[in-house]
Design a protein around this nucleic acid. Sequence first.
RNA 1: GUCCCCGUAUCCCAACCGGCAGAGGAAAUGGUCUCAAACACCAUCCAGUGUGGGUUCGAAUCCCACCGGGGACACCA
Length: 940
Amino acid sequence: MSESENVGADVPPYRYTAATANEIEPRWQAYWAEHGTFHAPNPAGELADPEHPRAGAPKLHVQDMFPYPSGEGLHVGHPLGYIGTDSYTRYKRMTGFNVLHPMGFDAFGLPAEQYAVQTGTHPATTTAKNVERYRTQLRKLGLAYDERRSFSTTDPDYYRWTQWIFLQVFNSWFDRERRRARPIDELIAEFEAGTRAVPGGRAWSALSAVERREVVNGYRLAYVSEAPVNWCPGLGTVLANEEVTPDGRSERGNFPVFQRSLKQWMMRITEYGDRLVEDLDALDWPEPVKLMQRNWIGRSRGAHVGFPMDGGDVVEVFTTRPDTLFGATYMVLAPEHALVSTIVPAEWPAGTKDAWTGGHATPEAAVAAYRAQAAAKTEEERTADAKVKTGVFTGAYATNPVTGAQVPIFIADYVLAGYGTGAIMAVPGHDERDWDFAQTFDLPIVRTISTPEGHEGVWTGDGVAINSDFLNGKQVVEAKAAMIAWLEEKGHGKGATTYRLRDWLFSRQRYWGEPFPIVYDETGLPVALPESMLPVELPEVDDFSPRTFDPEDADSDPETPLSRKKDWVEVVLDLGDGPKTYTRETNTMPQWAGSCWYELRYLDPRNDKRLVDPENEAYWMGPRGAGDTGGVDLYVGGVEHAVLHLLYARFWHKVLFDLGHVSSFEPFRKLYNQGYIQAYAFRDARGFVVPADEVVERDGKWFHGDVEVAREYGKMGKSLKNVVTPDEMAERYGADTFRVYEMAMGPLDTSRPWDTRAVVGSQRFLQRVWRLIVDEQTGADRVVDEPLDPKTRRVLHRVIDGVRGDMEELRFNTAIAKLIELTNTLTPLGTVSREAVEPLVLMMSPFAPHVAEELWGKLGHEGSLAYAEFPVADPAQLVAESVTYPVQVNGKVRGRVEVAPDTAEDAVRAAALEAVAESLAGREPRKVIVVQGKLVSVVV
RNA sequence: GUCCCCGUAUCCCAACCGGCAGAGGAAAUGGUCUCAAACACCAUCCAGUGUGGGUUCGAAUCCCACCGGGGACACCA
């Protein structure tokens, strides 16, 4: 690695090199810090500044997904998005916007805790050290953050408000009629006044105090429930559905996850299912991310239908196709369904087919065996071959409410306990899974939708209802509505919507997270701490580790690190009725909690009275008119958070909106997914990774020393020995070169391979600009005040126009290409005109801010260019002096005509025909097409 | 299996509503500078747009099929 180290005696003394960059860059970084150059003024509060050049200007709030400060520090892939937003915001600031571009750290989480467990170092120490390292690395890149607004989610001043939001969630309920959250006191008032029926049918006044609390707790948006959860013994904690992979393992650590019924905190995100789906339409987000959220929420509209049984039980099913009810010839329950054990008769009823029994003598034996078999299967095995359907007859029948027919009830693992009611009506004629099952078990198939001529097998498409009595002749949509009306009238069911989304499991058995602001009294019911007691600080402990277990031990029980801190857990408090002993909640919040609302804290980071001053929130994030969602103007990050962070953050934001704490009803108006920087890794014949920077290419093959190695393409990472750090790039080329390279190598939203060798191209560009202004031998200023020649001036204005357009659309690669083009146009001119060079320096400043600031100074300006006006193209200069039309004859270019830009179509046509007269050779044109400003096409 | 995105020069990428396939960078080749090399500079080189069909005066761009790469979903009733 040599290029920059041989800056020898022969290099001209005033050339722009890595050494120049490394002198300039820290100096400007210090200047910006000292002058608070990138402070953004708030309308109100401590950060208000009426004297600021952008006070009262239109605002722009641009934010990156903040990093988890890992111990390994940054590699060149991490800051790609940060440099993108930095370039964009520097540009927007120069066009007159008051720009908010903050950065913070998402610092709670597993790695710091695991490191603490291994080394005994307190996670707070590790975290502080890592955050400091990140800050240093980011500062070296010249990222223009308002550093007054920076925080870590682990700061007690920050998580105080995370806990405060938890209390808001805990102290509210979802009013389904109004479709929004309301304070829990309003619910209690309704119960007291008798305007809302108490569940269970008893009068509010007849309930004991404890019973009342239990009723109310059943409504809270944050609640404790004993329910099946994802228990991961290997990690010693429970996990949210979103943190479990499709094959039933933990996203972190890849340990097996088991369903266990445990008492845990949940958040009622399902109540927001409709709004989370519907409001997606109003967001400027990439379609794939919207699709992922829609899929995850999985809203289905349909009906609940009751199938009565002789004993009085009713099998309740959910269906999206109530219109096919006449074709429901059997039913299937999930093996875990609660009814299964009660409906099984002692013997197989008459008419039981052999295939239905699984070879067992009694229904009880068959069901028991099938249940055991299903329970033993992993998620992966269960879904491995969807075409092969398994199941067994329960021996019981229910009545199809519309046909009156007795239909057999099966259990099968293709029906999931956790979705809908855990039971289905099977319509083999019009559902693929039911069709497959009916084939295997020889069940009757009744078609209720007309199928196209000649179609055989299952039909899931549209059609007209047949064999369906009062539905016959209706189209699917119409038939669904008619059936729902019938069901509701007869009391056999009603229209319903279900979701794949489950309530959010919100507690973790970890140390390094936010403590809950919750204690338990002698009744064992939770009591919220008052706001005045926030923050509930994380206590010091000796042992940070949760109890972990044999990863396969499904029956182990979680134990929280905080529960071992007895003198913290037992606490005497006066919560209004005198000092009493309480027991603290010892779970902590999941890592997502801190990132669920951080966009709001940037707006008013020092406010110790409120989460955010409403005036500041309305200014930075408020809606721009009726129907506008409000929110961050541009939010940049990777797609990997499509359903986790982005869904949780939307949920919390909507709760805060409902309770009147914010004016925007979505947190992120526009989302942009940056691509990833990929890298090559190399392995020898044994499969061992060799350091990528020691591999050389010869004749299209790769060698490590004399050993040929195989190349693979993928992530950059320590274990792949292919990490390149921004620090090393800054040292070898300077941060500006590194920034320009990252922005120039391709569109921001596509992934591309890192190529250190190509970085030099960006350095040459900066060097050429520098050379335009500074004499490399003497250091003298080369710029003259002579006007530009008209041709170059038109190039300049075309570039200005193009660069502005590119910047607005985040097309940084093409913007840089245009700047290079302009530079290459100016270089051979000999005289360097201020008229061209000043705009060039301003236009390059978003990408290469340090060298631009330095050159701006050399051009005679005082202070920073951060608030200088970005060049504006003169429309008069954008009109070409003349236009050259290529003239095509039958699609081939046969001539050219040069005319004035405003030449009328007829004149262009005449000139063009003349120009290709020879090619026409007397043939009469059948058609002449003149595309104004583009070309002429002649057809003969 | 279903859906979405992408295949342009040796490589990374441009080409905005269909209009002369090349803006920019890297590599390569030749040259200037140099005792020499590196740096720098100048010049050159390089594809008819994955394949096959269609629409059109005209297709990288629109449509269909296939091939290759990436992503999402995958018993959700």
